Simulated scan of single mutants.
Amino acid sequence: MATTHGIAIGAASVTKRYRSWDMAQPEREWRALTLLAEHAPGLAPEPLRDGTAESPPAVTMSRLPGEPLSAPLTDAQFAALVEAMSVSQTAIPAAVLAALPSRLLHPLDALKNLRAWSERGRPPSDALAAEALGAARGWLRRPALDAVFAAEPPPVFGTGDGNLANFLWDGSRVRLVDFEFSGRGDRAYELAEVAEHVSAKGVLDPGTLLGRFELTPAERARLPECRRLLAVFWLLALLSDDPDRPRNPPGTLVHQAGHLLTLL
């Protein structure tokens, strides 16, 4: 898979040098680091050097200690993950959040992209995957989904990437990295993005994670549709995987197909 940036790691700093700035990824990264340093100090790397105007653009930040979360999670790691997610979403004041651009892959954009993506390619050879794809196509065609995902719930800060590799455990707390897709988001979608990310399979139970957050009735009603949307994304992503160079363990596609059918 092509990456959006290269990384140079020093003794105390990390520099991300971007290959593209079409979607303002460097500015999003720098803005996120700056805001989190002000409103949630210690949660993310400190911004050290703004090279977003360079060609190619770059962002230099402090190097954090720790290792990505992986199975089996201890109770302390799980509690620290919940704390880090909650703080990252709520620490930035509402007035500042309101002025932020929407995160990349806004739910409505994701819906439109998935509708087109789901109709491309050959039918999968695996029977369960084929059944899940058919169910996904039927769900994506529901007109009511446009109104669901066009809604703008009360904003939270969205990191833009639910990969557990972006949650670093240093022995006492979890900290966050990687904000190139960040921006204004909504709580249900941000929580679903972590719960449904393929990196969470076998590491944490989605229901257990989501049950640790107090949601409003509106957020709780929105959450299942957000989970389905992101589960469809991962089904399509796994169907697009190169069988000769798989990025995920054997059985991941079949597991995702069964999981999606359960959600639908």
Rank of each mutant, 00 (worst) to 15 (best):
S20Y: 02
F233W: 02
L215K: 09
G158V: 06
G211A: 13
L168F: 07
D205S: 12
L164G: 03
V59L: 10
L100E: 05
Q77L: 03
G6S: 06
R137Q: 15
A150D: 14
E219R: 05
E67T: 15
E219S: 13
A257R: 02
S118G: 13
E38V: 10
G202M: 12
P154C: 08
K201H: 11
L100C: 11
G202I: 02
G211N: 01
R141F: 04
N113K: 09
F213K: 12
G138P: 00
L145T: 00
G202T: 11
E119F: 02
A218W: 03
L140F: 04
L97G: 07
H259Y: 15
E67K: 10
S118Y: 05
H259S: 15
G258C: 13
A257P: 07
A11R: 06
G171L: 11
G121N: 10
T159R: 07
L164R: 04
A11L: 09
A110C: 12
A2P: 09
G183C: 06
S62V: 12
A192H: 06
V254A: 15
G66E: 14
A2I: 04
T52I: 02
E29D: 10
F78Q: 04
E214D: 15
T74C: 12
R142P: 01
D241K: 01
P124V: 03
L235I: 05
M23H: 09
Q77K: 12
L209M: 14
A231S: 15
C226P: 07
V254S: 12
F157A: 11
P101M: 11
L104G: 00
D241G: 06
L35Q: 10
K16H: 05
D242F: 10
S20T: 08
K16P: 03
S13N: 05
R247D: 10
E152M: 11
A129W: 00
D244V: 06
V232P: 00
L204W: 01
T252V: 00
A79T: 14
P47M: 09
L264T: 15
A188Y: 05
A8M: 02
S172K: 10
W139H: 00
N248S: 14
A150K: 07
A257V: 08
W21N: 09
V203C: 05
D178C: 07
A94T: 13
R122G: 01
E225D: 15
P68V: 12
D186W: 11
F213D: 14
P26V: 00
T52R: 13
A11G: 04
T74K: 06
D205Q: 13
V198Q: 09
A94G: 06
K112R: 15
L261H: 02
R120F: 06
C226W: 08
K16T: 05
Y18R: 02
P93A: 07
D205T: 11
Q89I: 11
L48W: 03
P45F: 08
L263M: 15
G251Y: 12
Q25G: 01
G10C: 05
P154L: 14
L236H: 07
V177R: 01
A98S: 12
S70F: 08
